[in-house]
Design a protein around this nucleic acid. Structure first.
Length: 421
DNA sequence: TCTGGGGTCCTAGGACCC
DNA sequence: TCTGGGGTCCTAGGACCC
């Protein structure tokens, strides 16, 4: 059996955690740059604030209903997430961290009658330790566990825990759930399925998987099997190294100056290097993209990308930044108002695969030591070091994000520690 | 004025190989 | 007149997830 544990309104709940005065009030959290609504408290949902709506479109509702608005505070969310996951590790034999607010647990070996009490214990413990509310779905496959979790969220009478072990209960639930609420079925597939009269989860579960594979894909066929209790997906407790690393941001204000753009892209390249070294990988190529806004009508549009190959595999920040700057020289065009830029690494290799250069022997060990030292300093919170190419105003860069409603980093920065009295 | 930032997997089609 | 059959690798694009 698998459990899916999912935090309720995670970002919004993190914000109210240290602001008890806001409990029971409508709260929303915006995406980076205060762009769109990406999380809502139950009260905000009840007011009809939709997921993903641009912030400027809800200004009226904010005023009218006194909705409290926050910028994204990922320092806070990531730290609270780590605490929730650590708690789950103590409650279950194996945990797969699936996203910032969700985890799958493997519960094999636990007798059936103990599953419901275990779900309740998980809810209770995270409520006590982290002050967050979670829902728990338990079922024989991951897809059914997702479905059970969906039911636990949707129907409060379940008490936030749903165990779906009997076929009859699974079918009863599937009959009520639209097919697009199934994990792995999005809008497009939902539309194509509807054309064939497949509207509920049960409709899909009753299709022969061979037919679905032929007409749709092997992925959807797997979903059909999972809905029928045939587990095709297993718990992946050890995350595989990323095959692709992206660091990109929309700018707080449009960028028109090449030096400012250089600072931005070298900072993204630096971050990409940190992620790369963090998973002990090497890059063989790096891409850069820059673009104007696709939304502003009447404004000249430009978007371009360039890729460069390294002579030997590298995770050295100096190589990555130099490449980013070289690529910018290739695609930069004066006269545009740039809205976004990013760095992509997609050809990622493990150390030991590299072909060293015949001509110059890179001092691999020395660059590894240097990078490890820099990463260490930055992780310990004793200060920050970076390369001069990133510009000197690393804390408040000109191109930085707009975050006008940012809450304190309550749990990760000493000066933001809450004081009482 | 104002529209996020990551990821994954699969498939089709072209280039190329023998 | 008649023009094979079996592969691999790469890329772009589409779909999904949070």
């Amino acid at each position: 059996m698998y459990a899916l544990v999912d935090c309720n309104n995670f970002y919004a709940s993190c914000e109210t955690l240290f602001r008890p005065d806001l409990r029971g009030k409508p709260v929303v959290v915006l995406s980076n740059n205060d762009g769109c609504v990406i999380a809502r408290s139950a009260e905000a949902k009840r007011l009809g604030i939709r997921m993903g709506i641009p912030a400027f479109k809800i200004r009226h509702a904010v005023q009218q209903h006194g909705i409290i608005v926050f910028s994204s505070n990922y320092a806070l969310y990531a730290d609270m997430s780590a605490r929730v996951m650590a708690t789950l590790e103590q409650l279950a034999p194996a945990v797969e961290v699936y996203s910032i607010d969700e985890a799958f647990l493997e519960l094999s070996g636990i007798p059936l009658p103990q599953l419901q009490p275990l779900g309740e214990r998980i809810r209770h413990t995270i409520g006590r330790h982290q002050g967050l509310s979670v829902c728990v779905g338990i079922a024989p496959t991951k897809t059914l566990a997702k479905l059970a979790n969906h039911a636990a969220k949707r129907w409060p009478a379940t008490g936030g825990v749903v165990v779906l072990n009997e076929r009859a209960r699974q079918q009863k639930l599937m009959q009520l759930v639209p097919v697009t609420d199934i994990w792995g079925v999005g809008r497009r597939l939902g539309k194509r399925l509807a054309e064939q009269g497949i509207r509920t989860a049960l409709d899909l579960a009753r299709c022969p998987p061979e037919r679905i594979q032929k007409q749709f894909s092997v992925v959807l066929a797997r979903t059909v099997r999972e809905l029928n209790g045939n587990a095709c997906l297993s718990l992946e407790s050890i995350p595989a190294p990323r095959q692709q690393i992206i660091c990109s941001r929309s700018f707080g204000e449009r960028v028109t100056d090449k030096t400012v753009m250089q600072h931005a892209i070298t900072t993204h390249a630096w971050r990409a290097g940190e992620k790369l070294r963090g998973q002990n990988s090497l890059a063989s190529q790096l891409s850069l993209f820059i673009q104007t806004s696709p939304f502003t009508p009447g404004e000249a549009r430009y978007s371009n990308q360039a890729t460069g190959h390294f002579p030997t595999l590298t995770a050295d920040a100096r190589d990555l930044l130099a490449m980013a700057r070289r690529l910018l020289d290739c695609i930069w065009q004066d006269g545009y108002r740039y809205a976004k830029a990013g760095i992509l690494i997609h050809d990622i290799a493990a150390p030991g695969c590299q072909q060293e250069s015949l001509l110059d022997s890179p001092a691999r060990e020395r660059t590894d030591t240097l990078m490890a030292t820099l990463d260490n300093i930055n992780q310990q919170g004793i200060g920050k070091v970076w390369l001069a190419a990133q510009g000197m105003e690393a804390h408040q860069p000109e191109w930085g994000m707009k975050r006008q409603r940012l809450s304190p980093a309550y749990t990760t920065r000493w000066q933001d520690l809450i004081s009482i009295g």
